[in-house]
Amino acid sequence: MSSPIPGVLAWAVIGYVTVLLSVRLWLGGGGAVMDRLVNHTGLWSIATLLVYRCASTPTIDDPANQLALGGVLMITTYQYSIGRIVSADAEPDAVWRHQRNAALLASAVTASTVLAVASARYSGRSVDLRLAGVGLVIGCAFAVTYNTVVLTRACLGVLRDVDTPRAARIVCGVLIASNVVLWGALALSLSQLATGWPGGPQLSLVHAAFALWVAINATLHAIPLIAELVLRAGMDRATRTCRRLLPLWRDLTAAVPEIVMPVDARHGSDPATRLLRMTVEIRDAMLHLGAYLPAETGETQRNTVREPESDRELTDYAHRLIRAAQARKAGLPPAGTGAPSSLPVVAHDFDAELAHLIDLVRIWPKAKAAME
């Protein structure tokens, strides 16, 4: 084998990309245009890496290298389409139609080159691909560079946006760096073709750079997969918070069942929506139970400064809220104390209110056990 990459490492890259693509397909990531573009990129990357492994010489004379160059060209047409979607240059459906035409053109160019060379060899005509191959490699290099520049330009636009999250900046930065590596390999390969150093045109460097580029891009494409797997496993922050709030929500809505909102079939499975709905329902239940709250203890009444509540103050409130829920479930009349209906500390935004509810949930089981 002429590959500059050790066999174990090369097969590891192929296996890695295959596993990630299989997971994408298993998760159902194939409906949107962007998903289809990423999936096709993965398929062509695997095919091209496999073709490179079949090359017997490191030069463009080898049919495997001709096919591999066509695979690289095909992959970068998908990169071009991804760049157009990222930069909002065109509608996704229009991009997909353009991509089908570009893929057909890349396939035709590759097939024509391979068939022409094979036909010439079969008929006994001399074919000096060390000279003719220069034009092929230069053409592919310019096409590959142009296609990847479009995506790089889109990533630079994302980086210039001051509102771009740090994670997105890291992804764009790594993607740009991987494209620069591929450009550098193509430029060096062209210089070797032009100068004849060392020993004429060869594509080993392009193969190595391409394998690295594929591994980096596959890793970047895996980030949404990890997020989806975390979401499906119920380990995301919103789902974990919902689980923590569940005992409080269950006890309060059992006393005030009419405030439970019907689940929207379109958004009911979204963790952020569930968390918002659960928080609103807990707050509404507290408002309804305000009329049933018994009077505060003397110690709580003396605490007129509304600073972050101590566990003692919060526990006293939890006891009163539990009594209010029990009274309403039993059908007793309101206490009529005019007691406040919300947490002892007033929250000014959703995050602050959620933090106070988490504090209440923390002492809720112990407070409930003390009331039994």
Rank of each mutant, 00 (worst) to 15 (best):
E281D: 02
W183P: 10
V150T: 13
T253F: 02
A233E: 08
R323I: 11
A12S: 13
I75H: 06
H267F: 11
L20S: 07
L332H: 13
P224G: 03
I138L: 14
H40W: 14
R232Q: 14
I60P: 01
S107W: 12
W364N: 00
W213K: 03
Y317N: 01
D264S: 07
D351F: 07
V361I: 02
S45P: 01
L49M: 09
P4E: 06
A88W: 09
L229V: 05
L245S: 06
L9G: 02
R237D: 11
R166L: 13
W44N: 05
N179A: 15
V95Q: 01
P165C: 04
A208M: 08
A88H: 10
V33E: 09
D161V: 00
G31D: 15
T18H: 06
W249P: 01
V174F: 08
A227Q: 12
G133K: 04
M1H: 06
E307C: 10
A347N: 03
A233F: 05
R121F: 03
P294D: 03
W183F: 15
P365C: 02
A367W: 03
G28S: 02
P308D: 05
E313H: 09
G157S: 08
R320E: 00
H207Q: 12
Q301R: 13
E258W: 11
T297I: 03
W364F: 08
P344R: 08
A254E: 13
V117A: 13
A272C: 02
L275R: 13
L203P: 01
P308W: 07
M235V: 15
L203Y: 01
R153S: 09
L332T: 12
D311K: 06
I223H: 10
D161W: 12
V86Q: 04
R153G: 02
L354N: 01
D359G: 05
A330S: 09
G184S: 15
E296L: 03
L276I: 06
L25K: 10
S189H: 04
G133T: 10
D93N: 03
D163A: 10
Q192C: 05
